[in-house]
Design a protein around this nucleic acid. Structure first.
Lengths: 204, 204
DNA sequence: CCGAGCGTAGACAGGTCTGTCTGGTAACGT
DNA sequence: ACGTTACCAGACAGACCTGTCTACGCTCGG
């Protein structure tokens, strides 16, 4: 009589429901602002089931970060015939599209890092890993594009990425988008420009 | 017998002690992670005194943000004989010095905004005010410097400011500092460069 | 001298947090 | 037929959260 499925639930889906509810809530409201009770309520899952799949809340937070990183890598890693430079431009174009969405609430990595002051915490380590991957990706693309200073410029691209994450959340998306597009173009042109200068050609 | 001063406390200083403890803790550990009990304990103040001075915790948070904004304005507003361009460069130089400090934990405005998803919240409004002041300041300086696109470039400087706030907290400060200094210089040179080009001069 | 204002100490209420535990149900592989 | 695994419902513990309240003391202006 009791314990019948209130929702037509697929079996084996409790983990997924918990994870998806957590992802949505963590992103929209912040990690510390969302309790386990809230997550299991929205997932329609028993508390024991939650703690059966995740040893503790922090493990869920870490899984959330790792999955966000995996998603971004999957998008960036899909092969294409574009030039390195076009790949970078397309990546920022994509970020600008995401940022213009009304549901945008900032970069999940930056927002979560703000709630974990301890740099040695597993969650922070996961965030560090993602940032390192990102910086390496930028650097490799810049090298492939023949940029004269790939390491520093990769960090500059990271600066822009972090800046747009904050800006799209707190400022006017249209202005932020315009500023980002121009800054990225100029940054990449600076590399090409240097190469041209070295080849004996002037500006324009 | 009871109620003797454990510390040699100056009278009328309870508000200050609360505020300073809150500022330190909010910045170092985040707003949601620090409770009122903790603040009053570190301030050496009774709970009733806390609620005598602040209607609630959010008011204290707002006061924290407003004061941080006031401090930054005070630094930026002090007059000098420097050119507009030098003022901008000096501002970023100052931020880089702050960011290199081992106690640096990111931009208080960005970190706090990450904990207040509701854009209509008084705390978020205070943060918006600060960002608007900052953008206006950049724009006015760029106009005074004769930059051809002050509005967009002001937003770009804001992008860099937010990016360095995150980067100095999460990445290698030395690399971030180098990237910031170069990006700012290049951004300001681009304006001057456009002027030169319009005057009929080529690159270099 | 005396009251107002600021301060202390600490109990208390009502809620929420993470995490544990009991008890029972349903599907599945062997 | 049986054990395992996944799942649900919900009570419970113990800590911490914000915020209120009582009761008392110190100091200073009038």
């Amino acid at each position: 009589m009791t314990t019948r499925p209130p929702a037509p639930r697929r079996q084996g889906a409790a983990w997924t429901r918990v994870f998806e509810a957590a992802t949505r809530l963590f992103y929209a409201e912040g990690v510390h602002a969302v309790g386990v009770d809230r997550i299991i309520a929205e997932a329609g899952v028993a508390k024991a089931t939650f703690y059966h799949h995740f040893p503790g809340k922090d493990d869920l937070v870490r899984a959330y970060i790792v999955e966000q990183s995996r998603l971004q890598r999957a998008i960036a890693d899909q092969p294409g015939s574009a030039s390195p430079r076009e790949v970078i431009v397309a990546a920022f174009e994509r970020m600008c599209r995401f940022g213009a969405d009304p549901g945008y609430r900032g970069c999940p990595f930056v927002n979560t890092a703000a709630e974990y002051p301890d740099a040695a915490h597993p969650v922070r380590r996961a965030i560090d890993e993602h940032r390192n991957w990102c910086r390496r990706l930028f650097r490799d693309l810049l090298i492939a594009d023949g940029h004269p200073d790939p390491d520093r410029t990769a960090q500059t691209l990271l600066l822009l990425k972090d800046g747009l994450g904050v800006g799209f959340d707190l400022d006017d998306p249209a202005v932020v988008g315009a500023a980002v597009r121009e800054a990225v173009t100029r940054l990449l042109d600076a590399g090409a420009h240097s190469a041209e200068v070295r080849a004996g050609d002037g500006a324009r």
